[in-house]
Simulated assay, not measured.
Amino acid sequence: MQKKPLREVIAAPLDRAFRVYSHGYPFQFSGWHYHPEYELHAIRRSSGLCYIGTYAGPFETGNLILTGPNLPHVWVTDADGYGDGRQGDFIPDRDLVMQFSGAFAEKCLESFADCADLRVLLAQASAGILFSEAVGEPVARMMEDLRERSGPGRLALFFDILDRLLADKARQPLSVEWQSYQCLQPKRLDNILKFIAENYNRADLTCGEVARREAMELSAFSRFFERHISCTCIEYINRLRIYKACQLLIETENRITMVAYEVGYDTLSTFNRNFQRYIGSSPSAFRAHRRYGLMRSAHQIKKASAGGA
C-alpha cells in the first residue's frame, strides 16, 4: 500500500476540456492520491470514511463532493459499507467522476464574464466541498447524461452542472484551505504542501526542515503557514498521519504498532494520543468498530473531527 499520496496522471483526450467516467472499488487510484485537475465525485454505492486534505469523516451513497487541484483524497469503503452491489471484494461503479483542468477553468473565467462567480466555487474547492442532498441527486443524473452528450450541448450541460453547484447555499467546506487564490506566494505554498504530502510519514520530518527548504526563518514560516492553512504546521502533519492511519487500519491487517510506524510515529504512545484526539477513539476500537459495523454515527464522527481542529 502507498504510504505517500500517489500522483495520478489524468489521461484525458486532447480534444476534450473535461471528462466523465465511472469506476469501481478498489480502483487503480482508490488509494491516497492527488492530481492537478478539479474533480467532482458522485458516490453511487457503498459507505465508509473519506479523507480529503486534512478532513476525515463518513461518506455514504448520494454524496457529491468537489475537490480542487492537488488536494489529496481517498474514499475507503469499510466492511459494513459494501451493501448488495458487491461482486466478491469489488464494488462496480462506486464513483461517478467529472474532471476538468485548472487551465480550462481559468480560460472560462478570462473569456466569459458570466463565469466570474465561478471563481468563488473554484477557490472553495481547494478545501473540498460537500454539496447538499437536494443538489447531489439531480447533479449526479446530469453527470450521467453528460457521458452521452456530444457537441455544443455537452459544453452547455457542463456549465449547467457548475451553475447548480454554485447555487447550492447549503454546501459545506470539508478540509482546511489547501491553497488560497489570494495567496501572494501560491507557488511557495504549493511547494510546502507538496513536500509535506510526500514526506509526512518520516518520523524525523520537522517544520524547521520544511522552513529551511523554502529559505525561511522558522518564525516567518510559521506565520505564513498558519495564515494560509488555518492551523500550525505540526498540527497539519499530525492530521495527515492520523487520517492515513485510519486507511491502513481499515484496509490492512497490519499491527497497530506497524501502522504507527508507517505513518511517521516512532512512539506508540504519541500515535495513540493523537489518534484519540482527532478520531475520538483508540486505534484498536476504531478498527473493531469499522470491521464489525459498530462505528459511531456520522454526527459523532463529525463532532469528534471538529473537536480536534
Score class of each variant (00 low, 15 high):
Met1Asn: 03
Pro5Ile: 02
Ile10Asn: 02
Ile10Leu: 04
Ala12Leu: 10
Pro13Thr: 09
Asp15Phe: 08
Ala17Glu: 14
Arg19Gly: 08
His23Lys: 14
Pro26Met: 12
Phe29Met: 04
Trp32Met: 11
His35Tyr: 00
Leu40Asp: 03
Ala42Asn: 03
Ala42Asp: 03
Arg44Leu: 10
Ser47Ile: 09
Ser47Gln: 13
Leu49Asn: 10
Ile52Leu: 09
Gly53Glu: 04
Thr54Tyr: 02
Asn63Gly: 03
Leu64Glu: 01
Thr67Ile: 15
Thr67Val: 15
Leu71Trp: 03
His73Glu: 08
Trp75Cys: 07
Trp75Val: 10
Ala79Lys: 12
Ala79Glu: 14
Gly85Arg: 12
Gly88Phe: 04
Phe90His: 15
Ile91Arg: 01
Ile91Met: 04
Asp93Arg: 15
Val97His: 02
Val97Cys: 06
Phe100Gly: 01
Phe100Ala: 04
Phe104Asn: 02
Ala116His: 13
Asp117Thr: 10
Leu118Glu: 04
Val120Lys: 15
Gln124Lys: 10
Gly136Thr: 03
Gly136Asn: 05
Val139Tyr: 10
Ala140Arg: 06
Ala140His: 01
Arg141Thr: 02
Arg141Tyr: 00
Met142Glu: 05
Met142Asn: 06
Glu144Leu: 08
Gly153Lys: 01
Leu157Lys: 08
Asp160Arg: 15
Asp163Met: 09
Asp163Trp: 10
Leu165Ser: 01
Arg171Cys: 05
Ser175Ile: 09
Val176Met: 05
Tyr181Gln: 11
Gln182Phe: 07
Gln185Ile: 08
Pro186Asn: 04
Arg188Asp: 11
Leu189Glu: 09
Leu189Gly: 01
Asn191Phe: 05
Lys194Ile: 06
Asn201Asp: 14
Leu205Met: 02
Thr206Asn: 10
Cys207Pro: 08
Gly208Met: 07
Glu209Val: 11
Arg213Pro: 00
Glu214Gly: 13
Ala215Lys: 15
Met216Asp: 07
Leu218Arg: 14
Leu218Gln: 12
Phe224Ser: 00
Cys233Asp: 02
Arg239Gln: 14
Arg241Asp: 00
Arg241His: 03
Ala245Lys: 00
Gln247Asn: 06
Glu253Trp: 06
Arg255Val: 10
Ala260Cys: 00
Gly264Met: 04
Gly264Ser: 08
Thr267Trp: 05
Leu268Glu: 13
Leu268Ser: 06
Arg273Cys: 08
Phe275Thr: 02
Arg277Glu: 08
Arg277Lys: 15
Arg277Tyr: 09
Ser281Val: 01
Ser284Leu: 07
Ala285Tyr: 06
Phe286Tyr: 11
Ala288Asn: 11
Tyr292Gln: 11
Leu294Thr: 14
His299Ala: 12
Ala306Tyr: 08
Ala309Phe: 05
